[in-house]
Amino acid sequence: MPEKSSELVQGTLEMLVLKTLALMPMHGYGIALRIEQISDGAFKVNPGSLLPALSRMERAGQVKGEWRETENNRRAKYYALTEKGRKALKSETAAWGRQVAAINRILEA
């Protein structure tokens, strides 16, 4: 193992995906790469968990998929955030903030 990649905290993947897509529409690998880069390689997202999550979020109406050409001339499904997704991101971020603060309080107590 060259570097230690940590497991994602349960249930946070969808929030991270929402946050990533808030910048611009991306395809699956783009999302995975972006999360890996921004987390400095701490989080690796494989398609086995990313694609089901995207499928779930598409069902829930938080993202909208569209097949387009990539810069490498491949057809890939690009996901864009919907209005509903934007709201979900906002509420999930807020909830996450509260949770982290609470956990920190407990750990420092």
Binding site: H27, G28, Y29, G30, A32, L33, P47, L50, L51, T70, N72, R74, R75, A76, K77
Partner: peptide, 8 residues
Amino acid sequence: ELEAFIGE
């Protein structure tokens, strides 16, 4: 979709 993922 998976193929595109792997290709990219």
